[in-house]
Design a protein around this nucleic acid. Sequence first.
DNA 1: GTTACACCTAAGCACATATT
DNA 2: AATATGTGCTTAGGTGTAAC
Length: 469
Amino acid sequence: MARLRVLAVQMLRNQREASLQALLPQLRSRLLEFMQGYRKPEASPGKVQHTTADRRHSRKGMFGTEGAETPQERVVGDPMALAPVSPCSDSSSSSASDESETDEVLAIENEECSMLAAIENAADVDMGVGEDDSGESDPDCKLPTAATRASKRQSGSGFRGVSRQVHATGSVNYRAAVSVCHLWLKTRHTASVEESVDFHIILIQLRECVEQGVDGGDGVEGPLSFEQSFRAACMQRQEDLSKMSLSFSVIFSAFGVTFNTPTTTSLEEALEVRARLLAAREQGVSALQAYLLEVLMAGRTNVRRRSRGWTLAEAQEFVGRFSARSEAMQRKREAMKQLKSEALQRRKEAMEERLQQRRAQRALRDARKLERQQQRLQQRWQRVVRHAQRALQQEQKLSASSQQQAAAAAAAAARAKVREEAQARRVAERGRRKLRSWTSMKNLTFQEQQVAAETAAETAAAASRNMCT
DNA sequence: GTTACACCTAAGCACATATT
DNA sequence: AATATGTGCTTAGGTGTAAC
């Protein structure tokens, strides 16, 4: 394990500048080499037999009281190939140079560990998407999409599709599992992570083969049904599959209920259950319930270990969930619809209310405007009235004064007339006096008398005019 | 609705120890 | 010695759920 770390870190250090694409296959192949080298010597497929010796050995290893670690224990104790380890754990089997390098590794482990994990993931991606020509391609241990890579969910084993179980006693087990179109394939548990990874690789190859068969891909004569394709793929890998003690269950969700059928070791049974469940789902809730009830109540023969059976009441209660859930979903849909329409109604009402408010506001504004206009008119009117009154008063004043003036004028005119008349009389008197004096002057010619008379008349007239002005 | 897990429960086995 | 019972461990089967 330490060697692997050293190799990994060396490669990282040496090739940090190199492109990731170039680095990943090498790292991956080294990892697989290591894992191959550490493969458990005994390969006992099928049921695991616990001999007394095995168990004693296992217990010694478990409690760590005596004896050297077996390879298996080392793998179990160090399930993550690239996980941190204590410095002394590998000291007995490591060379001096390895030790120093291990120390170095440990020193930079914190820094590198996350990077290694990232690279491991990236390597998986690389192998899942791009093809590795090394012949050790592992299309299986992959995190194929960015979305999956970003997922917080992480396999405890460090390998996609291989789950890890740690028991209270500290023992660790691995199991590979893959789902293929509702069919869930699980291998037996193994104590060795690499064995489970191998199993998972085989399962993924199987899945790809099945999908190719269904799609009518390369080397396949036309599209096959899922069952045909699955059977054919299993036939091709019969030898590998026999080592894995595969068990099948159908994972399915319908009408809002997710469930899985009881596990079976019979592929044919699993395929049939799957096909019939899919068909029943198409037909509706009651058809699905009927068939599922049949499945649950059927005696189970193709199992390694029988789990609890279903009583009729339990099975009925379970299948009843479908109709209940279906009804609940229907109710939910209706409720949603109702809510939606209510929301729409509320929105409409709110809009109407806002509109009314706006109208009321506008009316209020208009009323205020009108009021202001009226006030202005009123004020203007009042001003006009005051003005008119003042004008009238002035008029009246004027009229009164003009009357006084007229009266005064009339009085003055009368006085003037009197004066004028008096003047005229005086002038006339003077003229008469002159005339009398002229008559006394008898020696004046007639013409001179005429001129004198005219002059006297003009003087009288001028005097009269002067009086008038 | 599907997939890929993590996690839990319990069946089944082997062994130790107590009882007959 | 035979049998019953308790304990420890492995692993099959099943459930829940996050992420998509």
